[in-house]
């Protein structure tokens, strides 16, 4: 390689690394805004604003879903295996919504520390399998973990 080419290559490398540092610092500074949702722990600790549209995410707690018998109203708890928060919702839930499944809810936090949701989105994980395999894994208690809070989650809870 001629010296001139070496110099050019070094210049491009320098430019890219400077840019990467700048972008990296910006993203780090904005990370609170880039996170799509608040985890229940953050909400319990008071990091989420009251009475403003926020998003909260977590796993629907097993056995927590309470449906109203004569309306669409539904109440359920969402957890990150550290703290729990209750959600109230009065519209149609997505097909993938079930206990033990990840959800992201859009709504407002009220004074009692519960979220009144205007939208509930199902979050699914990266594990795909045929129904027979899923049934076999379930029977053996080996179902992979679906949670976005993998590091806090006890292994194979669901």
């Amino acid at each position: 390689m001629t010296p001139k080419r070496k110099k050019k290559l070094a210049l491009i490398g320098l430019m890219l690394s400077a840019l990467a540092i700048a972008v990296g610092l910006t993203l780090y500074a904005l990370s609170a805004n880039i996170n799509l949702f608040f985890a229940p722990t953050q909400i319990v600790q008071g990091e989420a604003p009251l009475d403003r549209e926020i998003r909260a995410g977590g796993m629907v707690v097993d056995g927590s879903v309470q449906r109203d018998s004569d309306s669409l109203n539904v109440r359920f708890a969402v957890t990150d295996y550290n703290a729990e928060i209750w959600i109230n919702y009065d519209k149609i839930l997505p097909d993938l919504f079930r206990e033990g499944q990840g959800v992201v809810v859009v709504g407002r936090l009220n004074e009692t520390g519960e979220i009144v949701a205007s939208q509930v989105l199902a979050r699914h994980d990266e594990n795909y399998m045929p129904p027979e395999v899923a049934a076999a894994l379930e029977a053996a208690g080996q179902m992979p973990d679906h949670s976005p809070f993998r590091n806090q989650a006890p292994q194979n809870q669901y």
Binding site: I34, L36, D95, L96, V104, L121
Partner: peptide
Amino acid sequence: VPTWGTWWMWDA
């Protein structure tokens, strides 16, 4: 649309 319940979300 069928899985999440929305076709767009401003996630990262």
